[in-house]
């Protein structure tokens, strides 16, 4: 566009586009940044302007039995759920990519449906379903629920990695004398690893931010970080919440950067010879 002498209207359109796009970016990012400074604001109130610097809100978070328990619960539920989702999701993706059979479309639609089914429906369903099994108010129940919600994330990322996997690589390995297990371990797995890892991170993040099932299925001593945040926001919104929010945001940025790095790595591996 720059080579041709652009008309005034074109220039105006271009400027309008850039300005509105930047405004939307600000809308997306600024609110998240806005809450961070309040976590070190020396005031009971969550308002600007800042009154002075303090670390007492962080101190009170770290000293609090409630938050210590919440962190423990979040990991106690999130990690096993992620492991289950990752193992089952990876196996299923490999199966789905392996062969065509009748009903495959229906099966993949079902496997992916936890991504879109309203979480309330899942939570209420489990609430009734778990009661006679004695699984309400247990860690097992919450882990199972979160694993089901996380598995489709793994299926999506691993399937994408498999779709771009060059079948000739497996053939080349076999032609060089590698038996099937070696082909899987030394060629397929390393190339699929970034996809599996980002799927696992997605699944973990989904569990780590899930409120509704914890609210319906969890016992009082099983409150997770988001569950405590939910209560805090409704009942006593104070700067300790801002401190927790800041910590969660740092974690989010870390996860985001790791997933992006994995994506770039997968892309590099994908760039086939000669392309």
């Amino acid at each position: 566009m720059s080579h041709a002498p652009s008309t005034l209207t074109e220039r105006v359109a271009r400027i309008a586009l850039v300005v509105s796009a930047i405004a939307v970016l600000v809308f997306l990012v600024a609110p998240i940044l806005a809450i961070l400074p309040l976590s070190v604001n020396d005031s009971e109130f969550l308002t600007y302007p800042m009154r002075g610097w303090t670390t007492r809100w962080y101190e009170s978070v770290f000293a609090s039995e409630k938050w210590r328990l919440a962190v423990m619960n979040s990991f106690l539920i999130g990690i096993p759920a992620t492991v289950i989702a990752t193992v089952l999701g990876t196996l299923a993706s490999i199966g789905l990519a392996m062969a065509d059979f009748r009903g495959k479309a229906a099966i993949s639609a079902l496997i992916l449906s936890p991504l879109v089914v309203p979480i309330v429906i899942v939570a209420v369903g489990l609430y009734f379903f778990f009661a006679p099994l004695g699984l309400t108010q247990t860690y097992t129940g919450l882990i199972v629920a979160h694993a089901a919600l996380g598995a489709p994330f793994v299926v999506v990322t691993v399937s994408a990695a498999l779709a771009s996997f060059d079948r000739n690589l497996a053939r080349a390995a076999a032609s060089l004398g590698a038996p099937p297990v070696t082909v899987f371990r030394r060629v397929m797995l390393p190339i699929l690893a970034p996809g599996v890892a980002s799927g696992a991170l997605f699944a973990f993040a989904a569990s780590f931010d899930e409120v509704v099932t914890v609210m319906l299925l969890g016992a009082p001593h099983q409150r997770t970080i988001p569950r405590e945040m939910f209560s805090g926001l409704r009942d006593s919104f104070n700067p300790t919440i801002a401190a927790v929010a800041t910590l969660l945001t740092v974690l989010a940025v870390a996860l985001l950067l790791v997933v992006e790095a994995l994506r770039l790595r997968a892309e590099r591996l994908k760039t086939r010879a000669g392309d």
Binding site: I32, A34, D209, V211, A245, A252, V253
Partner: peptide
């Protein structure tokens, strides 16, 4: 664009309340 996607829903609600 992805930053809000990864940020906790609760954090974002808190941000809008503030």
């Amino acid at each position: 664009v992805l930053l809000p996607f990864w940020t906790s829903l609760l954090v974002r609600s808190a941000a809008w309340i503030v």
